[in-house]
């Protein structure tokens, strides 16, 4: 017994070392195992405040480019609007139908405006922190978009901050389709350049061309269908050779993300409940 105690005292730094390493690896794997706690992320109060303060300063540096982007976007949209108005007029003279269509399109979605306060594009698992949380209506598993396209999915929320898993994360998987032909697959990221992601399971018989636009499919309850994702940049074979692997050039520039919108869908519970009940029955 005495020998044992002597041994323990002599090598107590070994024990402490092993103990601390075990804690870090538990943190490492627990966080990756989706059950991570908000405390250990940049959504906790102290880190959130620090990042918000610096963002208030550095946000000004990008204003010029953001402004020019907005002007461009605005111009494009107003041109589109004119075209659409004309098309509407030709198609139907009945104005009540137009009003009804407009309302239906926005009926089940509410957009929550948020600012990115921390962002990275270089790791295998990148995360984005935004300055809106549960108090503003942001919940886990809501979709997040920017002015130019899709961003990611809310992962952790605290009262005033939230962490997002963007497309640029090895765990991100978002259901997408080719807008022209409606064939769908899952968008994944494989590390490397933050400009490109991949759809690995596009069926062999699907029809598409390089340059086609890819949008969200609306199959998941997170994103409504038709949110812009990117364009087909290159086509190859998937690893098993059974399907096409598409390289997608993303519309969103993750390295320069500043303002985003969180999509709150009101009838999401109904869809989820229905899907869950089916899964439970199959078991």
């Amino acid at each position: 017994m005495r020998n044992l105690l002597d041994f323990l005292i002599k090598y107590k730094h070994w024990l402490l070392f092993i103990f601390l390493e075990v804690i870090s690896f538990v943190l490492l794997f627990r966080f990756n195992g989706y059950q991570g706690s908000v405390f250990f992320t940049s959504a906790n109060v102290v880190t959130g405040k620090v990042y918000q303060m610096t963002n208030n300063l550095t946000g000004y540096f990008h204003l010029k480019t953001i402004n020019s982007d907005l002007v461009q976007h605005n111009a494009e949209l107003s041109i589109q609007l004119e075209h659409l108005k004309e098309a509407y007029k030709k198609l139907t003279a009945d104005t009540t139908v137009i009003e009804q269509m407009k309302q239906e399109a926005l009926m089940d979605c509410r957009l929550i405006k948020a600012n990115v306060i921390n962002n990275s594009t270089i790791h295998a698992n990148n995360f984005i922190t935004i300055d809106k949380g549960e108090a503003d209506g942001v919940q886990k598993e809501m979709g997040v978009v920017s002015g130019s396209g899709i961003v990611g999915i809310v992962y952790q929320t605290s009262a005033h901050y939230a962490v997002i898993i963007p497309v640029l994360n090895s765990k991100s998987s978002i259901s997408c389709k080719i807008r022209r032909s409606d064939y769908f697959g899952f968008l994944k990221w494989e590390g490397g350049s933050p400009e490109f992601a991949y759809i690995k399971d596009m069926p062999r018989h699907s029809i598409f061309e390089v340059g086609d636009t890819i949008v969200t499919s609306g199959h998941s309850a997170i994103f409504p269908s038709g949110v812009l994702v990117g364009t087909v940049d290159d086509v190859g074979d998937s690893n098993d050779g059974l399907s096409y692997s598409i390289r997608v050039k993303l519309f969103t520039d993750f390295a320069r993300l500043n303002e985003v919108r969180v999509i709150e869908r009101s009838n999401i519970e109904e869809q989820l409940e229905l899907e869950e009940s089916v899964v439970n029955k199959e078991r």
Binding site: E21, S24, L27, L28, F40, S120
Partner: peptide
């Protein structure tokens, strides 16, 4: 210090394990 950096960088455990070693 490892844990503090980790919390800010959203990488719990990564820096902590390395710096402790």
């Amino acid at each position: 210090i490892g844990l503090t950096v980790d919390i800010f960088c959203n990488t719990p455990g990564m820096h902590t394990a390395a710096i402790t070693l």
